[in-house]
């Protein structure tokens, strides 16, 4: 009988979806790098939690100050009329010189397929990461129809709407899928067989979402080594590499048994209240029982009796 490994395989693994910074509903690590080291994740696309839970501009400022090549910044863009957008216009986004942006139309209250968002996205020509909970299949079909060259990374697709997700992949050639929440038996292999591993990317949503399970799954997929390597980082490299742009540097995978946490000097130079390295150590685990239980149920109506 096969033996499971308790240590992830070394190699280039890039997490397409991680958060940096504090969240209001739990006591979670604010700096993703120690956990990335422990799990053998060489680099990650990161969004700052302030951009999701507070002020998009403040989060982007903290994110863009990080200056760590292992952390690929994915700032949050809020298209809108002057005075209502983040940042002020597409030109400022271009000046950031980032490889991907994130949109949160539901959270930030704008129309993903409205005229302003479409004009911004057409002008930017950047890959766009969108959480499935922030949009709908119909909206994504419209977006792809209006901007057929747009590259979309669908985050957190889950497993409950696998049929709708498969339809999106079938109809939108420019849609890539984060696989960390495709959590039904054989779901990743099923999608890879239909649409190719080169459209699936390893991503977790950690630390709010789990990274241990998806990382283990990556090492135990019933796919060829080439397909697994594509999901580990190759597909994301293709997604993030616009024609004519610089190639993404190769990240040597830190082996979890030998790597050490990043040096403090390499950590962000952002203002201290935005700077993860300046935050106090997390409270002991036992104290989690006293935290406020104010989170809303994360699953949609109809989840009764399910997992």
């Amino acid at each position: 009988m096969a033996r499971f490994r308790s240590v992830p395989k070394p190699g280039e693994v890039i997490d397409a979806h991680r958060l940096i910074g504090p969240v209001p509903m739990d006591d979670l690590p604010v700096d993703p790098r120690p956990e990335m080291d422990r799990l053998g994740v060489a680099a990650a696309c990161v969004t700052h939690t302030l951009s999701l839970h507070s002020d998009a501009a403040a989060g982007n400022e903290a994110l863009l100050a990080l200056n760590d090549p292992r952390l690929i910044p994915v700032p949050v863009v809020v298209p809108g009329v002057p005075g209502a957008s983040t940042p002020g216009g597409p030109g400022e986004v271009t000046a950031w010189d980032v490889r991907m942006i994130r949109l949160c139309p539901k959270r930030h209250g704008f129309e993903l397929t409205g005229p302003i968002a479409l004009r911004w996205l057409a002008a930017l020509n950047l890959p766009v990461a969108i959480d499935f909970a922030e949009t709908s299949p119909g909206e994504l079909h419209t977006l792809a129809r209006e901007l057929p060259g747009l590259r979309i990374l669908l985050l957190n697709p889950g497993y409950r709407r696998l049929r709708a997700v498969a339809e999106l992949m079938a109809e939108i050639p420019g849609l890539w899928l984060e696989m960390g929440t495709v959590n039904t038996q054989g779901g990743v292999e099923w999608l890879a067989g239909l649409y190719g591993a080169d459209r699936l990317v390893f991503g977790t949503g950690a630390p709010v979402m789990d990274d241990c399970g998806p990382r283990f799954l990556l090492d135990h997929l019933a796919l060829s080594s080439d397909e697994t390597a594509a999901i580990a980082s190759g597909s994301l490299r293709r997604l993030l590499s616009a024609p004519g742009s610089d190639a993404l540097p190769l990240f040597e995978g830190p082996h979890p048994e030998t790597s050490s946490p990043p040096e403090a000097a390499a950590r962000p130079a952002a203002p201290s209240f935005l700077n993860p390295s300046a935050r106090p150590e997390p409270a002991p685990l036992l104290e989690t029982s006293t935290r406020p239980e104010t989170s809303s149920p994360p699953e949609a109506p109809g989840s009764r009796g399910v997992r």
């Binding site: 499971f4 490994r5 308790s6 992830p8 799990l39 497993y159 495709v182 959590n183 039904t184 038996q185 054989g186 779901g187 990743v188 789990d210 241990c212 399970g213 998806p214 990382r215 283990f216 799954l217 135990h220 997992r307």
Partner: peptide, 13 residues
Amino acid sequence: FLDLRVGLGRVTL
């Protein structure tokens, strides 16, 4: 219902 590998990986790692 869910993927066995994800469940085991959560404990393993």
